[in-house]
Write a protein that binds this DNA or RNA. Structure first.
Lengths: 205, 205
DNA sequence: AGTTATCTTGCAATGATTGCAAGAAGCCTT
DNA sequence: AAGGCTTCTTGCAATCATTGCAAGATAACT
């Protein structure tokens, strides 16, 4: 890579990591980040597409060496439903650890006009595909093992994923419908229970 | 009401109705709306809190005399589950008719600093409470009639509502995970099927 | 008719994002 | 090593939604 670009990326990632560790993305200006990195504001857009794009890159780097959250859920022993329950819990942990990044995965905005924004959108979609592929595989295994009734694994995985996203979104409502962490856990458990029951094989009559 | 305020509200609602009938909210500037209404840009914020707030008020007025969407779903004959299926369909129809307003109900942003924005947030929360109250009542009736297993109606209503929101949100994704109207229908049907099955009373063993 | 309260306005500002021309740095070829 | 070409960064002005505030006009009240 061109050393100038590498220097700019490194400086911004470093500055972003430092600033975002202490303050929320909304509380930080692009002016501040650029000043901390010693680059122009426009470099943020050229390199990452947006302020949120820089934040996503910071989180992606943090996650890179630590994918325990979802890995453990899908690798655990037990039935397919056990793994789905565990995946839901892991998804919540992931959300609580990286709420802004999660939001970009679950409810992405338009990528903007910069190439880096479009690249970010592609990376986010890929991350969702990877996580959903595991859900699909788990559902398929469950159906094949007779643990789950004959549902379309792809479609059902999308439903589960959308349900979890809908529940997490209640955490950032600005009104009395907002759910705190305990409320999210309860709703996730309730959702998992109803969904899991709905996926059980029907008894023969 | 102060006649000056009434005039400003009427002018802006009129201008908003005309402009939003032809073009999407994102495609219109506050400058354009204010010019069309013959008022200052600041009046939009004083009266509605934001551009989205004006749009919400326009939709609320349109809906006011026409609540068929959700009314029919909850009033139809049949089991509680029939009504829940119908409510899901009605919810999709409602979303397709008023996507931007729906988005404010399902995923509201921070209300901003204007009093009118806070009032809007309260109205949106109330609308969600009203719609969810019907869902709660339908679930309660189902449990009491033995049609549904003993779930917490309030909690389950929140899960259903969050699930539908999560599914609708797939319609505005900017990547290949996006679902068109047909895809939303399929996912909604799949979700309703799994959830409904999961809510059935467990057979005695 | 005078006073007080409310409403609207013009204006400057904030912050994220965008486009673009100019200059510097790096790469490649000779 | 030098020259030409490509890529990267920058400064700057701009767009747009939103915000705050002082000033003036309008309406209500006494």
């Amino acid at each position: 890579m061109d050393p100038r670009k590498a220097r700019t990326l490194a400086a911004l990632l470093s500055a972003g990591e430092e600033i975002f560790r202490k303050r929320s993305v909304d509380d930080v200006t692009v002016e501040e980040i650029a000043a901390r990195a010693g680059v122009a504001v426009g470099s943020i857009y050229n390199a990452f597409g947006s302020k949120a794009g820089l934040h996503a890159a910071v989180v992606e780097r943090a996650i890179e060496g630590n994918r325990d959250h979802m890995d453990h859920a899908y690798q655990r022993e037990g039935s397919a439903l056990d793994r789905i329950y565990a995946a839901a819990d892991a998804y919540l942990s992931f959300y609580l650890s990286y709420p802004d990044y999660f939001r970009m995965l679950a409810f992405p905005q338009a990528p903007g006009h910069y190439a880096a924004g479009k690249e970010l959108a592609a990376r986010l979609a890929r991350a969702v595909h990877e996580q959903n592929a595991r859900l699909v595989a788990t559902l398929r295994e469950g159906v094949e093992a007779g643990e789950l009734r004959a549902v379309d694994p792809q479609e059902t995985a999308t439903v589960l994923w959308a349900t979890w996203n809908g529940i997490m979104s209640l955490h950032w409502r600005p009104d009395d419908l907002r759910q705190d962490e305990a409320g999210l856990r309860r709703l996730l458990a309730a959702a998992s229970d109803v969904l899991a029951t709905g996926l059980l094989p029907r008894p023969r009559s």
